[in-house]
Simulated assay, not measured.
Amino acid sequence: MDGPVASHNVFQRATETALYLRTSLPDILHHPKVAIVCGSGLGGLAETIHPEPRIETAYANIPNFPRSTVQGHVGKLVFGLIGPAKTPAILLVGRAHFYEGHTMDLVTFATRVCKVMGVEIVIVTNAAGGLNQDYAVGDIVCLNDHLNMAGLVGIHPLRGPNIDDFGVRFPPLSDAYDLELRRRAHQAWKKLGLDKQKRQLHEGVYAFVAGPTYETRAECRMLRGFGADVVGMSTVPEIVVARHSGLRVLAFSLVTNNAVLEAGPRGDDEAIQAMSKDELGQHLSKGKANHGEVLEAGREAAKDMQQALVKQILSDLYPQ
């Protein structure tokens, strides 16, 4: 379903979808406690669950679900058990984005379904551009705040009649990023010895922009000036809806490219006057982001984020 969803029908539709999903699940998976959203190139997080029982369902086969059309987003739900306590979990391998043409209701619909199914904690991952010059490609950022740039100008997932079945009309977001979960993330990083390697774990602020274009140099400087450390085209709508629904949130950004903050070359710069057209193109394109690099960086960092960090956090949170 790709058309607009009336706000007053969202709870009913989410309930219908949850009932549909439960028809194919064993009883032990009917009420998952954790949902993990796998961002660009991070679908390997699905390998953190135990091999049995494991139930996969393509988004295309799920009533009311939007379809993900972006490379690196497979588009399936994976149900299984995770960690030593065999905690029931849902993994969302791929997500729907606003820039694909979906409404905000659809972009955040899976989060609503997770709430109806009994999820308590949402772990959200994404690939993002690094605005903070102290960040290197491959670093991981535990988010502690965000700038909802699209939401500030009216593209907000809670716009319209409030859905009282999920939450209050004016939910606060000053506590959106759960402090205890963030503490556990840093503790798990050290417990695994990941603090001894080159890749770093930071805390920072994520700027959500609508996309699908990567940001201009001036836009990157503006966002950095506003206090953003990373920038991307997802995550924040899901987090807003998760908090509206009373879910606890832990979010990670994988830095897949360094945003270009310095101003571009001027046409009257003496240094470029003798350059050929090809040389000018190469000069201007230094640092330009591309989706292929995003996916490759995701693959390179996947082991630290998926097989180690997330699994360790959940093992500590739900011990045997």
Rank of each mutant, 00 (worst) to 15 (best):
residue 2 D to H: 15
residue 4 P to K: 02
residue 5 V to M: 14
residue 8 H to T: 15
residue 8 H to D: 15
residue 17 T to W: 09
residue 19 L to V: 15
residue 19 L to Y: 14
residue 21 L to R: 02
residue 28 I to F: 04
residue 29 L to G: 09
residue 36 I to V: 02
residue 38 C to M: 09
residue 39 G to E: 00
residue 39 G to K: 03
residue 41 G to W: 03
residue 42 L to P: 06
residue 48 T to M: 15
residue 53 P to M: 10
residue 55 I to S: 08
residue 64 N to M: 07
residue 65 F to K: 02
residue 76 K to Q: 12
residue 79 F to S: 11
residue 90 I to A: 06
residue 93 V to W: 00
residue 95 R to H: 09
residue 97 H to P: 06
residue 103 T to P: 07
residue 103 T to L: 03
residue 104 M to A: 10
residue 107 V to K: 00
residue 110 A to S: 08
residue 111 T to V: 15
residue 115 K to F: 12
residue 116 V to C: 07
residue 120 E to H: 03
residue 120 E to V: 04
residue 123 I to E: 00
residue 124 V to R: 00
residue 125 T to F: 09
residue 132 N to M: 02
residue 133 Q to W: 05
residue 134 D to A: 13
residue 137 V to W: 03
residue 140 I to L: 15
residue 140 I to P: 04
residue 145 D to Q: 02
residue 145 D to N: 06
residue 146 H to K: 02
residue 152 L to E: 01
residue 153 V to H: 04
residue 155 I to F: 10
residue 155 I to H: 01
residue 159 R to P: 03
residue 159 R to G: 08
residue 168 V to Y: 09
residue 169 R to N: 11
residue 171 P to G: 04
residue 172 P to I: 06
residue 174 S to L: 14
residue 177 Y to I: 07
residue 179 L to F: 13
residue 179 L to C: 13
residue 181 L to I: 05
residue 181 L to S: 05
residue 183 R to P: 07
residue 184 R to A: 14
residue 187 Q to V: 11
residue 190 K to R: 10
residue 192 L to D: 11
residue 194 L to S: 14
residue 196 K to H: 09
residue 196 K to V: 10
residue 196 K to A: 14
residue 199 R to F: 13
residue 200 Q to T: 10
residue 207 A to K: 00
residue 212 P to A: 14
residue 213 T to Q: 14
residue 216 T to S: 15
residue 218 A to Q: 10
residue 219 E to V: 09
residue 219 E to F: 07
residue 219 E to S: 06
residue 220 C to I: 08
residue 222 M to W: 02
residue 226 F to V: 05
residue 228 A to H: 05
residue 231 V to I: 00
residue 233 M to E: 01
residue 234 S to P: 08
residue 245 S to V: 12
residue 246 G to W: 11
residue 249 V to G: 07
residue 251 A to K: 04
residue 254 L to W: 06
residue 256 T to W: 05
residue 258 N to T: 15
residue 261 L to D: 00
residue 263 A to E: 15
residue 264 G to Q: 01
residue 265 P to E: 05
residue 266 R to P: 07
residue 266 R to C: 12
residue 270 E to G: 10
residue 272 I to H: 13
residue 275 M to E: 15
residue 275 M to T: 13
residue 279 E to T: 12
residue 283 H to F: 15
residue 286 K to Q: 15
residue 289 A to E: 08
residue 290 N to E: 13
residue 291 H to L: 02
residue 294 V to A: 07
residue 295 L to C: 13
residue 296 E to N: 06
residue 297 A to K: 03
residue 298 G to Q: 03
residue 300 E to I: 02
residue 301 A to R: 05
residue 301 A to M: 08
residue 305 M to I: 15
residue 312 Q to A: 08
residue 316 D to H: 02
residue 317 L to P: 03
residue 320 Q to V: 14
